[in-house]
Amino acid sequence: MTWRLEITHRTMYQYNGPVYSSYNEVRMTPRRGGSQNLLSSTITVSPSASLYGYIDYFGTAVTAFDLHRVHDYLDIAASSHVEVLTTKGPEHTIDWNNLLSDDTADNFAEFLMTTKYTTLGPEVASELKDRIRSEPTPQDGLEVGLEWVEEHLSYERGITHVRSSAAEALTIGKGVCQDFSHLTIACMRSAGIPMRYVSGYLYPGESPAVGESSVGESHAWVEAWLGRWIGLDPSNHVSHIDQRYVAVGKGRDYGDVSPFTGIFYGGESSSPMVTVSITRRQ
């Protein structure tokens, strides 16, 4: 089934004190290709600025802009129309020999590396490696890994923060989608399964009515490579993502897909106000 979704993502910063200039990058444009068709997308910024777009190393669309007039707020609105197709069911035929071959390891080297977000202690990593690899197929291994994450992490907001690593979340035992994703990535990579981090949007309900607008979420999930990239959402225990998921950025970890980065000169900012609304149009 194909859905057509309209997504509006608004980010508001209020600075306490005048800001003289700022340089920023936005990664909020849904990807093209795969199970997604991007029909249209716009990003508007206030105070107004000229926008510069490019595609980054990981294929994510970036919008860059700088401001040079004194300002005390920043308002970014990203809206898009996306057609999302349901991907076909699993067809993973890859076996451990293929997955762990030198060839695969080299081709996906980037998604097998540990990063500062996705490093686990050596004992945990080696234990996970043994457990996952003792399964008959990589697909079974993946499920065992997901169970392990589910056992060790429970969903709770406000405990971890945007810079928390997988190891920190594991110690606390609680976290949000970002932590689930990082821990899942760390877990699978330790067993040699290439993993990548995905940022995007999730439609909240199961089957929305056309035209009805809902409060959506900016979300993060992961992809595992088992002969092809398979999307899965560890925080919602979804082993195959469907048409409710709209992907924006992909990378090794959060650091590669951060939706908004930048520096500014002058007053300090409070945390941003973020709203996401998703409407099914078809």
Binding site: Y57, N107, A109, E110
Partner: peptide, 13 residues
Amino acid sequence: PRRLVVGSSQFAR
């Protein structure tokens, strides 16, 4: 090897 390049701290993504 790809991992030599992508694993370099100097690889400028």
